[in-house]
Write a protein that binds this DNA or RNA. Structure first.
Length: 298
DNA sequence: AAGAGATGCAACCGCGACCAA
DNA sequence: CTTGGTCGCGGTTGCATCTCT
């Protein structure tokens, strides 16, 4: 038994919007607002459109003060650094760019910006594909995210991160938004990239060294409270993206790019960027974490 | 010039979150 | 607490346009 549809699909128009439809919707919303109910809105104005479709059209196209195309270098930097930090949270990224919609940014990232920054890697992949499509497919199949422990997205962000670190072209963003990769991350990334380029067998993530008797407490500063995380051993690799844990005895605790994880105190974090640890390593002060209790972002 | 493939973007889909009853 | 309705988000698709051969 599936979910009930939000509207009568058979009597709803789909596809591109006409100028008349645009004008009708725009006029109504500008005069009356949405009324807090997108589902009922098309009926009110006599349109054969799904309420969700109206909402999307308004938010992505008809809303005033929207910018289309022509992303600036500064916007590129912001998108890139936020993507590295928080992943594909397009609505959050869009909130930092006035006049831009999440859909716009998502499209821009997927079609242009990603290629601009990771273009070389793609060319290499295409070359591989041309040389031996069958073999390539076979390897792709076996090199699923779980085989090397990192999803494509996580690997992509690691690669971007390293690449951008080397550019060092925007001092502000560089220091504020792009924390240095931990040596372990660098090693991991280089290993993954090397593995990919060589079309090798699947790479298994190394297990983290077992933490010793460190009494350090990782502290994350969140918007509403502080979370004390027991630095007991974290899992690395596995089905989701895990690069986290206590890496050595010097207190350089690390949490990075997990899609989701649960600490021993039961707090779930979702797609974190990095934590600062209570050790005085200023390069780890930036964090982007969402915890299960709703707290925390940057 | 024409066909094939690549690219860009608007729109759709499905799911989880949220909220009120 | 449960249920049903709506919202908002991220992933995906479809199609028009562009580029290459």
């Amino acid at each position: 038994m599936g979910r009930a549809p939000c509207c009568d699909k058979a009597n709803v128009k789909k596809g591109p919007w006409s100028a008349e439809e645009d004008a009708k919707l725009k006029d109504y919303i500008e005069q009356h607002g949405t009324g807090g109910n997108w589902i009922a809105l098309p009926q009110k104005i006599g349109m054969k459109r799904c309420g969700k479709s109206c909402r999307l059209r308004w938010l992505n196209y008809l809303r005033p003060n929207l910018k289309h195309g022509g992303f600036s270098e500064e916007e590129d930097n912001i998108i890139c650094s936020l993507y590295i930090s928080i992943g594909s949270r397009w609505s959050i990224i869009a909130a930092q760019l006035p006049g831009r919609t999440d859909n716009d940014i998502k499209n821009y990232w997927n079609t242009r910006l990603k290629k601009k920054l990771l273009g070389r890697r793609k060319q290499q992949q295409q070359l591989h594909h041309q040389q031996s499509p069958v073999e390539h497919d076979h390897q792709n199949h076996h090199q699923s995210p779980s085989s090397h422990g990192l999803s494509n997205s996580a690997l992509e962000r690691l690669q971007l991160h390293m690449k951008l670190q080397t550019l060092n072209q925007n001092p502000l963003l560089h220091t504020m938004l792009w924390p240095k990769l931990h040596p372990f991350q660098e090693k991991l990334l280089l290993q993954a990239m090397n593995d990919e380029n060589n079309n090798n067998q699947s790479m298994q993530l190394p297990l983290l060294p077992q933490p010793t008797t460190s009494n350090e407490t990782i502290t994350t500063t969140t918007t509403t409270n502080e979370i004390n995380v027991d630095p007991s051993p974290f899992q690395l690799g596995g089905g989701d993206d895990f690069i986290m844990g206590n890496l050595d005895n010097s207190g350089s605790s690390l949490v990075w790019w997990s899609n989701e994880f649960e600490t021993s105190n039961g707090v779930n974090y979702d797609r974190s960027g990095s934590f600062s640890s209570s050790s005085n390593d200023s390069s780890w002060e930036y964090c982007a974490v969402r915890s299960s209790d709703g707290a925390g972002l940057f």
